[in-house]
């Protein structure tokens, strides 16, 4: 399925339209790229419609117009939710009508498990960073991601994880003073020292 947006607004991840592509080599793991068809589009639209309906029901419980006769807290949400649901509904009808025609696009490939694993790694960070703190959690995250994205001997993975964990802590926490969870582990060490 073509993606017209990619050429106009997003970063360009495609080979340029020159006479021939740039000199690349296949070194990454073999992954079947997922091209969602119209069925996936219907699922996406339907999920958002469901969210939109829940949103609209909640918005309708807020005051649409307040005592002074001016728009209340529910006014803008009702407008916003209606915009989303109405346009999604139009798209769903359009897709439903297309189903019986030749224009219906079938999906190819499948969603890579690697993508699910990447998302799972970020969820893992979210789950344990409060307890273990940034340094240890980011080391675990780095190990997971490096293993997911490529193939390296274990000792390299360990060195990279140590470098990323300690390096990002030094740069972002110590140097730039950003607020990153220290975790109970580090708190325990600090109180012990």
């Amino acid at each position: 399925m073509s993606n017209p947006q990619d050429n106009l607004e997003g970063p360009a991840t495609v080979v340029g339209p020159g006479e021939e592509p740039g000199p690349t080599t296949d070194t990454g793991p073999d992954v079947a790229v997922w091209n969602p068809g119209d069925a996936a589009r219907i699922a996406f639209d339907a999920a958002l419609v469901a969210i939109g309906i829940v949103y609209l029901v909640t918005a309708s419980q807020m005051r649409f117009i307040n005592d002074e006769g001016d728009p209340g807290a529910g006014f803008f949400p009702v407008v916003s939710g209606t915009i989303m649901v109405v346009f999604l509904a139009i798209d769903l009808v359009r897709l439903a009508l297309r189903r019986r025609t030749d224009a219906w696009e079938r999906g190819t490939g499948h969603l890579s498990l690697r993508l699910v694993a990447i998302l799972g790694s970020i969820a893992m960070y979210l789950a344990i960073v409060g307890l273990l703190g940034h340094i240890i959690t980011v080391m675990i995250l780095t190990v997971l991601l490096v293993v997911l994205f490529g193939k390296r001997p274990w000792w390299q993975v360990v060195i990279i994880a140590l470098a990323v964990g300690i390096g990002t802590d030094l740069l972002f926490v110590e140097l730039l003073g950003l607020r990153i969870p220290t975790g109970l582990f580090r708190l325990a060490i600090s109180s012990w020292i």
Binding site: G10, P11, T13, T25, G28, V33
Partner: peptide
């Protein structure tokens, strides 16, 4: 974009 890149292959040689 990371997810899109993770699907694809190819590094510059």
């Amino acid at each position: 974009e990371i997810l899109l890149l993770a699907e694809g292959r190819g590094t510059v040689q």
